[in-house]
Structure formats: C-alpha cells, structure tokens
Amino acid sequence: MTWYADDVWIVIIGSLCAVACALPGCFLVLRKMSMMGDAISHAVLPGLALGFLVTQSRASLPMFIGAAVVGVLTAVFTQWVGQFGKVDRGAAMGIVFTTLFALGLLMMAEVNHKTKVDLDVSCVLYGAIEFTPLHVIHSFQWGETWIELPLAAVTLGAVLLINLIVILALYKEFNLSSFDPALARTVGVPATLMHYLLMSMVAVTTVASFEAVGSIIVIAMLVVPGATAYLLTNRLSVMLGISAVVGIASAVLGHWGAVTLPPKFGYENPTSTSGGMAVAAGVLFLLVWVFSPTQGLLQGVWMRVRKEPNPIPVTDPDCESSRGPTSHHAAKTLRSR
C-alpha cells in the first residue's frame, strides 16, 4: 500500500492512543480489573447526555468532563456495591455499568426528542480514527514539508504525557500497591487513594481516547498489550515497555491490515482501522501465548516431551510399594526392616 500523510497520522494517533491506554492497562491486568475499560466506556453515556443538557451544545469540553466524571463514578459505585452489598466485584461492575448505560440510552432519547438535535448513540460514543486527520487545529511548515497537526494527536499526546508523568512520579507506590496491597498499606502507601488515582487515569484516558478514535481501540488497548507483556516478563518496568511496543505494533499492523487485507478477499473498500488494531493486538497476543519462551504453550509441551523419555529408574522395591497414598503401608515396611 502507499502511505499518504493521512495514513501516517492515523498510525501516529493510533500509537499514541495505544500507548496511553497500555500503560495504565498493565496495572489493570496486575490488579485483576481488566474489564474496567469496557465498563467505563459504556457507562459514560449519561455523562455525555448531561454535559449536553447543561450546555445545550455539542461542544467537546463539557461532554468530556461529564463523561470523565461518570467514568470515575463507575469505579466508585462498583467499589460501593462490592463493599457494602458484599457482591462479587465482576458482578458489581456489570450491574453498575449496564444500569448507567440504560440510563444514558433513555436520557439520549429524551434529549433527541426535546431538542430535535440528533445525538446518535453510536456517533457520540464512537469516534472514528479514519476521520481524525481531517480535524486540523494547527498547520506549520517543517523544512520542505507542510505539516497539519490533527486535534486528536494533540489530545492523545497530552493524555499520554499525563499518564507517563503520573506513573513515573508514583512508580514505587503503584508497583507496591499492585503486587502487595497489604504490605503497601503497612509501609504507609494509601492503597485506596492509589486505586482511585488509577481509576481516574483510566477514566480520563478512556473518555479522551474514545471521543477521538472510538471505544473498541480503548477496550482492546487497555487489556491486550498489558496481558501480552505479562506473558513475557516478571519485571514491571519491562512489562510497561513491552506493552508500549505491542501497542505501537498493533497500531501499525492494524491500519496496514485494514487497508490491504479486504481487497485480497474480494471486497473493495478498506475496513475499520479501530477494529483492525484490536485484531492485530489479538494476533500478537496469540503469537506470544504460543511461543513465549517462559510461559508459552509450546514451551509447556516441550518441557513435557523432554521429560518423558527419561523416567527416574526405580531400584528399590520397597520404594515402589510405598509410593501409593497409604502412609500406613510405608510405615509397616519400615517397621519390618
């Protein structure tokens, strides 16, 4: 395929988004909260509707704030329902986000009806990465080339920067409270505060990203790169690095696949880059899952194969007889000696 400027921008924006999501995503994987991105991206609907109702315009900022607030509230409500109701965390999350989503649907219907503004759910909820290069906020000349900076690149770059700063500044605290919350609390790290800080980070990242590029990228990039990296290393810093690489690789591969693959199957138009990125991340995960040198499927098979032709020879007949679960039998053998 030929790479036009738009293609390059799409891949850059996709990569920014992927890395911005992958970094907090690593902590979600470690804390067993991977479904949070999915929950938040559905639950923000009432926040968007509320932001619209307050300002009566489709301006981006109030809706962004509304969505981010409801995103954090999703985490808070989930925590409450889990804690006070003693409900399993997964179930609590499911109840909270579906309820908020349903509320949002009804509010959208009312808003549409009252204001005669077409606030389509799928339009509001899912931006499209293919159109991001069209929304230029600043253009300048750099050497020979004329560069048009899209809004999404700036937004996502800012989100990535914020995430990076927060994680680097509180690296030790995040590290400790992810792996051993009890120890973290003992040495004075406020684990609850860290939890809500992470949740706010996830909420802001999720909302900023899906407004710009669509929710499916966010949901995928919050989980898959982190999980892939988790299969390759035991060190948190390495895990963060690998997840970022996986994110960028899925952005490049995803866009390339979305443009080049459909014609190979006889369909003329390119398909969705967002979906392509999710699938590319899935393929990378699959490869690592099979071939990981420490935890891969093949590694497991290889270990078993290597062990089998070399069984431990049994020389002592007493040993052989005392192998069973009856310690009583073994004791008798010992006594008879």
Partner: peptide, 26 residues
Amino acid sequence: TRMKDDSAMGIILSVFYGFGVVLLSV
C-alpha cells in the same frame, strides 16, 4: 497462563468485538 478470568475475558471480548467491527465495516 498465569492470567485470571478478568484478563482472559477482556482479551477475548475486545479482540472478538474488534473483529466483528472489522466485518461489519466490510
């Protein structure tokens, strides 16, 4: 793997749904 239910579900959810979005767009 050493991953728990939540990560496994998150991966399958997003990748399958992404594939669905790809096909839907086709």
